[in-house]
Amino acid sequence: MDVNAKVRDPREHINEEPRNDLGDLMTGFFGMTGFMTVVFFGMVIVKFIFSE
């Protein structure tokens, strides 16, 4: 069985882009935490407006 597979050494990192994984993680975590905080206080304000 003849297979024409192009095998490359994974250590070459041909298409690897420089990334800051910790920065991406912190940005996502604190961004989502900030968004949920805004949503929480928004819902608290809505609750007090509509409660009688």
Rank of each mutant, 00 (worst) to 15 (best):
M1K: 13
M1W: 11
M1S: 15
M1Y: 13
D2I: 11
D2Q: 13
V3G: 08
V3W: 13
V3I: 15
N4S: 14
N4F: 10
N4H: 12
A5Y: 08
K6F: 11
K6I: 14
V7T: 09
V7A: 09
V7I: 14
R8A: 15
D9Q: 01
P10V: 03
P10T: 05
P10E: 04
P10M: 04
P10H: 05
P10D: 05
R11P: 01
R11I: 05
E12C: 06
H13S: 13
H13C: 11
H13M: 14
I14L: 11
I14H: 08
I14E: 13
N15C: 09
N15H: 11
E16T: 09
E16D: 13
E16C: 08
E17V: 10
E17I: 09
E17P: 06
P18Q: 15
P18N: 15
P18A: 15
R19A: 13
R19C: 10
R19S: 14
N20S: 12
N20G: 10
D21F: 14
D21K: 14
D21S: 14
D21N: 15
L22M: 12
L22V: 11
G23T: 02
D24S: 08
D24M: 07
D24N: 09
L25D: 05
L25V: 08
M26N: 06
M26H: 04
M26I: 09
M26E: 06
T27Y: 08
T27W: 07
T27S: 13
G28F: 03
G28V: 01
G28K: 03
F29H: 02
F29W: 05
F30G: 00
G31T: 01
G31W: 00
G31S: 01
M32N: 10
M32E: 10
M32D: 07
M32A: 12
M32Q: 10
M32S: 11
G34D: 01
G34I: 00
G34P: 00
F35K: 06
F35W: 05
M36E: 05
M36L: 09
T37C: 04
T37M: 07
T37F: 06
V38N: 02
V38P: 00
V38K: 02
V38L: 07
V38G: 02
V39W: 02
V39G: 00
F40T: 03
F40N: 01
F40Y: 03
F40I: 02
F41M: 04
G42P: 00
G42R: 01
M43K: 03
M43Q: 07
M43C: 08
M43P: 02
M43S: 08
V44K: 05
V44A: 12
I45R: 06
I45V: 13
V46P: 01
V46W: 08
V46Y: 10
K47G: 08
K47M: 07
I49M: 05
I49Q: 04
S51T: 12
S51R: 12
S51Y: 10
E52H: 11
